[in-house]
Design a protein around this nucleic acid. Sequence first.
DNA 1: GCGTTATAGTTACATATGAAACCATTTGCA
DNA 2: TGCAAATGGTTTCATATGTAACTATAACGC
Lengths: 152, 152
Amino acid sequence: MPVETRPDHAPLELEHFLPYRLSILSNAVSQGIADEYQRRFDLSMTEWRVMAVLARFDGLSAREVAERTLMDKVAVSRALARLVESGRVNRGTHDGDKRRSVLGLSEAGWQVHDEVAPMARARERELLAKLDAEERDWLMRILDKLQPVDQP
Amino acid sequence: MPVETRPDHAPLELEHFLPYRLSILSNAVSQGIADEYQRRFDLSMTEWRVMAVLARFDGLSAREVAERTLMDKVAVSRALARLVESGRVNRGTHDGDKRRSVLGLSEAGWQVHDEVAPMARARERELLAKLDAEERDWLMRILDKLQPVDQP
DNA sequence: GCGTTATAGTTACATATGAAACCATTTGCA
DNA sequence: TGCAAATGGTTTCATATGTAACTATAACGC
């Protein structure tokens, strides 16, 4: 049985270290949800995020999708390649700027969306059910304050 | 300028979706810290986590490191390979069980640790400085409640 | 107008990660 | 004992991800 040693070196206690705790929690939560749609729809987390913003904002360009998801443009490009390939996203070209794509969910894309979105929300509810109303309030306030404003 | 569409499909609003917010926050925080020790010490996040537990618990086996860090054994094995190679971790063999390794920080490992740990703590403090004492209290309480008990 | 610079998006390469197969050793038990 | 099952750890392979280079088009300055 190992013993705690060298207190003079002030070792980091991971289980009380906020960044570590956030990372463990976040991964468990997101991965739990992603596993489900991955299995059922062969959809990666990045692909789902792209679909989610296209569900809200039709006609975005790839760059705009990247902005909204905070993903980098390469990740978006790859996710889109698969989504277009699988027929879940339609890609057109912008009138008057042939560089820009014009993206939107296809009928099949909407069908997937309409199954995944409620599932994701249900999982979020399960998570929040561990908290009472007051705690939920504080959590949202705290996240607002911790959230970095914008990363370019 | 794109317009919000198809409210009938109840699209997910990522920026209000807790798992997404946690993920963005957690990545920004952890990556911010990791960038710094990566640059200064050529140390990956997984390697740092291994070092952090070995700083607290000398003589662990690789499996025990994996348990403490919640990383899988392959990741630990790889991190250890690099750490032993770079002379930051000593690896011996357990008396009476030749499968098990006996791990600990080397002198060089301690030197790295003693620079990285205070830096990590400083970054954590900067993050927590965005909150007042009451908010910090709530945050810790909330994390305790949300934290999955254990993943085997 | 035309060359330079910027922008949208993709491709290529190098590295990271996860799952499963694998080797060595130890444990359990007939 | 001795052999099947379990355990510690590494390797392999397939996939994911990030960075930089690249292509095509558009915007800018003269």
